[in-house]
Design a protein around this nucleic acid. Structure first.
Length: 510
RNA sequence: GGCCCGUUCGUCUAGGGGUUAGGACGCUAGAUUUUCAUUCUAGUAACAGGGGUUCGAUUCCCCUACGGGCUACCA
């Protein structure tokens, strides 16, 4: 059987990193096994539908390079891939279960059931629609056939529920957790078809996974408690022989404290939890995405893959191709992983420094475009070369490299006060002059010239270099001074030096 | 409350009946860079607790504690 896996999100909002990781694991397994990666949109709840969410999901997968083989935007042999569009298909399956006695009509209203639940709150047991209560409720099990028919004809609202067998042990194998078992009497008679005719998640999921010939269901741990219901459904349909393998992923947790990672944690702790920027269509509120924060897709995926999985070797930096080769469901951990933004940054930084300067130049170019700055490709490439080991995020390029494109906006006055002193500063006009006359304007020649200048005047590196650095960049940080001087060119270097000569005295006095 | 899943350095984790319990992030120190960052080296730090089983348990079993998930006509 050809491996077929699916990522099946609900379009209820932006994808957070847990969702992306689920997609990634599905993708990795599909690619490793030469199988098919399917995107299915589970939009059976019209009330929670959020406009733009589906596009967001598709854009995220595209940005990450998780190419979808079948899905709503690319089609495929099992189209449609949006459950709302598959609505007419589910009814017959519900009826099949009705006919075989595995399901029944239930006429109880949601309000009535809520009341029952409230009345049993805090007691020994909470109300559950199950084998012990269903004979006291109004459904096709308790009503006469005639009355059921009459209610149906009259147009009474109803749902179709799964008739969960009493006192059975439901056992299934989870690839990650091993054998898992549930007592069927603890399960409730889940609604299969809602009163609006839409299937519930459980129904649609099982039917579609079967129809789409899914071989592995890889999803979050929050689905583990409903997995036995799904197993029962496969059984009721007579599909148990081709039931997919289940793998329930551990959750991604808050870095501090406990609980699932949520949007709030990101806001609170200052890091993104979504893949891309997201604008809430109702409030207009914008949530930061990893992409916009300066992450690149490969390290983003690399980092995500390691949240709950590891290859068993000491290699941590992986390309997506390498992840495909190394991945295995069996090596996924059982326990939830707390998200660590520091480690996420490290993956990104490690990746950026491997990018060839010409390529990095292309990646950072938009930052200059935004500022209306145009430079030659050679210039940008050299700037990228100088900065590539110094960037954690792509966005750091401007912060660290702006002095390549514009004069320093301010000077490190505290340092100037220490270094711009009588007895030393008098020599600098001569240095500027020598730079101007230097025959060979290269980093090497500059260094030789500066050393010569120092020797002749009995000055040390500490007397001279900080001054040159501040003249050129304004700060004590940044790439090698001589490289910087060569990059910005002799004219610009001289211009900045002259400016320093003019301004430093005033700065030191104040 | 009930059910299910889980628990190795602060964090992500390797390991698995006998190990100096390994790596990575972070942090600290040193080296390099007369800057900062990078890089390199070193250091820091863990088997939740209690019972078994065993010659020997961190590893297997049980209990407890703690954490998480689920408990809707939401997914």
């Amino acid at each position: 059987m050809k491996p077929r896996v699916r990522f099946a999100p609900s379009p209820t909002g932006p994808l957070h990193i847990g969702g992306v990781r689920t997609a990634l694991y599905n993708f990795l397994l599909a690619r490793q096994l030469g199988g098919t990666f399917i995107l299915r949109i589970e939009d059976t709840d019209q009330e929670r539908f959020v406009p733009g969410a589906e596009d967001y999901i598709i854009e995220t997968l595209a940005w990450c390079g998780l190419q979808v083989d079948e899905g709503p935007h690319v089609g495929g042999p099992h189209a449609p891939y949006r459950q709302s569009e598959r609505k007419p298909m589910y009814r017959q399956y519900a009826e099949q279960l009705l006919a075989s006695g595995n399901a029944y009509y239930a006429f109880d209203t949601a309000d009535a059931l809520n009341t029952l639940r409230e009345n049993t709150q805090g007691g020994a047991s909470t109300f559950k629609y199950d084998a012990t209560t269903r004979m006291q409720l109004s459904n096709s099990l308790t009503l006469s056939a005639d009355e059921v028919k009459e209610r149906l004809n009259r147009g009474d609202e109803y749902v179709i529920r799964l008739k969960v067998p009493a006192n059975e042990e439901v056992v299934f194998e989870d690839v990650i957790r091993g054998g898992v078992s549930f007592q069927s009497s603890l399960l409730d008679d889940k609604v299969l078809l809602k009163s609006d005719g839409m299937p519930t998640y459980h129904m649609a999921n099982v039917v579609d996974d079967h129809l789409m010939e899914i071989t592995h269901v890889i999803r979050g741990e929050e689905w583990l408690p409903s997995a036995p219901t799904h197993v029962l459904l496969y059984r009721a349909f007579g599909w148990e022989a081709t039931m997919p393998k289940f793998a329930h992923l551990p959750l991604i947790l808050k870095p501090d404290g406990n609980g699932k990672l949520s949007k709030r944690d990101g806001d609170r702790l200052g890091f993104p939890v979504f893949s891309l920027d997201w604008t809430n269509p109702e409030t207009g509120e914008v949530s930061k995405g990893f992409r916009e924060r300066g992450f690149l897709p490969e390290p983003f995926l690399n980092m995500l893959a390691f949240l709950g999985w590891n290859p068993g070797t000491e290699q941590e930096i992986f390309t997506t191709e390498e992840l495909i080769a190394a991945f295995s469901l069996e090596r996924i951990n059982k326990a939830g992983a707390k998200f660590d933004f520091e480690k996420a940054k490290w993956f990104n930084q490690q990746y950026i420094k491997t990018i060839p300067p010409a390529e990095l130049a292309n990646l950072v170019k938009p930052q200059l475009d935004d500022k209306g700055i145009t430079v030659s490709n050679e210039f940008l490439e050299e700037a990228s070369r100088l900065l590539s080991e110094r960037l954690t995020f792509l966005n750091d390029f401007w912060d660290q490299g702006q002095i390549f494109f514009q004069e320093p906006a301010q000077y490190d006055v505290a340092m100037l006060k220490k270094k711009w002193k009588e007895g030393k500063k008098e020599f600098f006009p001569e240095l500027v002059d020598r730079v101007e006359k230097l025959a060979d304007y290269t980093a090497g020649a500059l260094e030789v010239e500066v050393k010569l200048f120092m020797e002749q005047h009995g000055l040390g590196f500490g007397d001279v270099l900080p001054i040159i650095r501040i003249m050129l960049t304004g700060t004590m940080q940044g790439p090698a001074v001589f490289d910087t001087a060569v990059l910005i060119g002799r004219d610009e270097t001289l211009k900045r030096m002259h400016k320093g000569l003019v301004e430093f005295d005033g700065l030191v006095i104040s």
